[in-house]
Design a protein around this nucleic acid. Sequence first.
DNA 1: CTGGATCCCCGCGGATACTG
DNA 2: CAGTATCCGCGGGGATCCAG
Lengths: 112, 112
Amino acid sequence: MRPTECDYAANVTLGIIEGKWKLLLLCHLRNGTKRFSEFAHLIPGITQKVLTYQLRELEAHGLIKREVYPVIPPKVEYSLTEYGESLVPLMDLMNLWGENHRERIKPTERIC
Amino acid sequence: MRPTECDYAANVTLGIIEGKWKLLLLCHLRNGTKRFSEFAHLIPGITQKVLTYQLRELEAHGLIKREVYPVIPPKVEYSLTEYGESLVPLMDLMNLWGENHRERIKPTERIC
DNA sequence: CTGGATCCCCGCGGATACTG
DNA sequence: CAGTATCCGCGGGGATCCAG
């Protein structure tokens, strides 16, 4: 309630959430385990390097689990951890607010 | 539920929320109207340029209201709009999650 | 008092090529 | 298949100076 510094708690959350594709990745993982190539297919716009990077960060924060199967060809599965699921309410809220915001903006688009 | 693009609704929210000081500014405004100089005093780390910029963006998105009093010396007051208040639940949730995350991390700090 | 105008740095994210 | 390595551009944010 007295956020006199930039270490405001909500900013901690923001620091973990922010990243162009993180929320999208987390959202996809809510529907179940995903492989690296599945993400690349689901999200055509992302490059391999960035996909790797964002997944690594989510993993570093304990939100997702990375499981490597020592087979050929390689197989890696990503899944939401229990801790990652604690973000679900926040994701839902952000999703909801974002959709409302879109509809709020739309009327501006119609010029007529 | 089928976020095949980067225009995922939650990302819209993120785009409005993100910014190093925005959440903090919004939080301060929850306690009432603030003047420009008050922000500068409450948040020592922020520069005038950035403060101006972040306030302008929040205003552009309709979250805050900027009221200018034509007096000398200048007086400008910022306040939360009704739309801005619609973000309060999200802010609270982010704050809560952030605090929990801090405590979750702390044990790692104590090496003994 | 409330900014605007500049300059600068750094890191995120993108593009491309290569590898076990 | 699932990455790693390298280069690069852009923009957010900081520092500083100026202005009505």
